[in-house]
Structure formats: structure tokens, C-alpha cells
């Protein structure tokens, strides 16, 4: 167990290191950082001072080292555009994105997995065929278009639900939540459906494919040949074996929710990290882009670690390697 986790941790560090290197290169080599920080009328003398002060004259590896040390403490420099620390911007926006991603993840899992199991077990049924066709329509609808259609229908035509922003939020020290107000919850509905729909269809199709694979195995056939009732065969033997591969890929998918939120946030003007990022791209605000990249990688690594531990708990074959 320890060696397994250690190995995973090492891999995660390599991932974070690589991402940090990319982020640093963006910051250092895309455009001139000084030009981006100062106004037109700054003298050469002032520029040189700033360059020296920011350590941009140091050897590149030293700069990278400093970058990593700072990043580990949450310091990504100042935004070119807003002239405030990037970390302040990001942390202020983070709750919005995380709440949205969390609700969407729950939606996608709670609906996606049962539908996948159902369509695998009753694969020639009419309901299954309908669900499968709908899921193809689901993956064919770009998320931003889903958002637009929902806005058009529930916002513009029916006027039932708010179409932009988070509604009222309540602040807890540095965390602002929309979970505790009626308008906050109402505002969550359309964006979270938009974000969840695509992942839901993916998870459903994945669960179905894996389940069909497992249902064809010899041990399922042997379980039936022993006279075990369908309920036991399907849910005790087949489903558990399906979950092993599903956990990994689902973990990856959910990790990508945070990044996919960019689109949803943009459609619904949701004040999260994604909206910040997309504006940063339009403004070529490199520090924000770099910080966002590192942030996403961190969440991904975190989710992956959790997935690995789950994996380990489910599959005895992995545990056996320790003995």
C-alpha cells in the first residue's frame, strides 16, 4: 500500500513539475513580461529597475526555482490587467466554480451510472434504444448551445429561472456560497444542467460499454450456469467488476468538469475561474493563464490520487502485490 501510494505521489509530482515548467515558460517567454506590466511612458531606467527587482536578470533555472517556490505558496505574481495579485483573483472566484462543478458531478454520476447499467442489462429494449439515441444527441449538442437553448426556453420564453450570475451569495470568511439562498440555488440549476449533460452521456455510455464487456466474461456465464438469479449475477458480480475500470475514467472526466466550466461560465456569465481565464486569454494576461493552468493540474492530481485509493480498495488483485 505504502509503496503503491508513494509511486503515485511521485508521478503526481512529475505531472505538477511539468505543468509548472509550461506555466513558467509561458510567463517568461511569451511576450516581454516588463512591457506587459508597465505603461507606455515608463522610462528605460524604470524598466531596468523593475526587471532587476523581479529577478528577470537571474539565470533561467534560478527564476524557475523561484517560480516554483512562489507557486507552492499560492503566489503567481500580479495580473497584467488588474494589477492585483493573481492569487487573490483566483481564490475569490474559486468557490463559484467548485460549487458549480460539484453539483454537476453529482448530477452526472447519479443519473449517468444507473442509466448505463440499465441500458446494458436491457440492451434490446425500446427504452434502452431511446436512451442510447438521446445520448448520441446529447454528445452532439455542444455545451454552449445547450446553455443557449436552456436560456432561451427557461429564461426568455418561460421566464422561470435566472439566466446569468450566481444570485445572492453568503460569505463565510473567504468562501462565498450560493447553496444557502433561494436565488443562489435557482441560479445554479441551468448552469449545472448544462455542465452535467455532456459528462452524463459520456459516463452512461462508458458504464454501458464496460458492463456489456463484463457480461460476456466466463465468470458471469459460470455464475449463471450455477443457477444464480439474474439479480445476483448482474449486481453482485457484473456491476462490481464494471466499476473497476469505470472509476478511473470517471475520475478523469470529473476532473475535466472544472475546466469544462469555462464554457458554461461564459454562457451564463457565472463569476468563476473559467470566466476569469477566458477574459485573460482575450487580454493576453499571462500570469492568470499560468496560475489557472497550475490550479487545474492540481485539482486533477488530487482527484487522481483519490481515484487510485478507491481503485485499491475495490480490486483485491492490486492489494495482493504487497504480500
Amino acid at each position: 500500500m505504502v509503496s503503491f501510494l508513494f509511486k503515485r505521489l511521485l508521478q503526481s509530482i512529475i505531472v505538477m513539475f511539468t505543468v509548472a515548467l509550461i506555466a513558467f515558460s509561458m510567463f517568461r517567454f511569451v511576450g516581454d513580461p516588463i512591457n506587459n506590466m508597465v505603461g507606455q511612458d515608463t522610462t528605460q531606467q524604470e524598466r531596468d529597475d523593475l526587471r532587476e527587482r523581479l529577478g528577470l536578470n537571474d539565470p533561467v533555472p534560478v527564476q524557475f526555482g523561484k517560480f516554483i517556490v512562489n507557486a507552492a505558496q499560492g503566489d503567481f505574481g500580479r495580473s497584467y490587467k488588474y494589477q492585483v495579485p493573481v492569487s487573490d483573483l483566483i481564490f475569490a472566484r474559486m468557490p463559484a466554480t467548485l460549487e458549480l462543478a460539484f453539483v454537476s458531478a453529482i448530477l452526472a454520476l447519479v443519473i449517468g451510472i444507473p442509466l448505463g447499467v440499465y441500458t446494458a442489462l436491457k440492451r434490446s429494449g425500446i427504452a434502452s434504444k431511446f436512451i442510447m439515441t438521446m445520448s448520441l444527441v446529447g454528445v452532439s449538442l455542444p455545451p454552449f448551445l445547450i446553455g443557449i437553448l436552456l436560456i432561451l426556453f427557461f429564461g426568455v420564453i418561460l421566464r422561470w429561472l435566472p439566466t446569468f450570475g450566481r444570485g445572492e451569495v453568503i460569505e463565510f470568511t473567504s468562501w462565498s456560497t450560493g447553496f444557502l439562498t433561494a436565488s443562489g440555488l435557482k441560479s445554479l440549476i441551468l448552469p449545472s444542467i448544462t455542465l452535467a449533460l455532456f459528462q452524463m452521456t459520456l459516463i452512461m455510455r462508458l458504464v454501458r460499454a464496460e458492463m456489456l464487456e463484463v457480461l460476456r466474461t466466463d465468470f458471469v456465464k459460470f455464475a449463471r450456469a450455477r443457477g444464480l438469479p439474474d439479480r445476483l449475477v448482474n449486481f453482485k458480480h457484473a456491476l462490481k467488476n464494471t466499476l473497476v475500470p469505470v472509476i478511473t475514467i470517471t475520475g478523469l472526466q470529473l476532473g475535466s468538469l472544472i475546466a469544462f466550466a469555462i464554457i458554461t461560465e461564459s454562457v451564463f456569465q457565472w463569476p468563476g475561474m473559467g470566466l476569469l481565464f477566458i477574459q485573460a486569454i482575450a487580454d493576453v494576461d499571462i500570469p492568470i493563464m499560468a496560475a489557472y493552468l497550475v490550479m487545474i493540474a492540481f485539482f486533477f492530481v488530487l482527484i487522481n490520487m483519490i481515484v487510485d485509493i478507491l481503485y485499491y480498495a475495490v480490486d483485491p488483485r492490486l492489494r495482493a502485490d504487497d504480500e
Binding site: M26, V30, G255, I262, V284, M289, F300
Partner: peptide, 21 residues
């Protein structure tokens, strides 16, 4: 490592970098 990031994010980043260059 690339799989850690959704395609859309990578495309956005490359586009952002291209704008800088």
C-alpha cells in the same frame, strides 16, 4: 500529462499563447 487537461483547455491555452507571440 496532456490527458490531465481537457482538449478545450489545451486549445484555449495554445490560442492564448499564439496571441502573445
Amino acid at each position: 500529462i496532456q490527458l490531465s487537461f481537457p482538449a478545450i483547455l489545451i486549445a484555449l491555452l495554445i490560442d492564448g499563447i499564439a496571441r502573445g507571440i
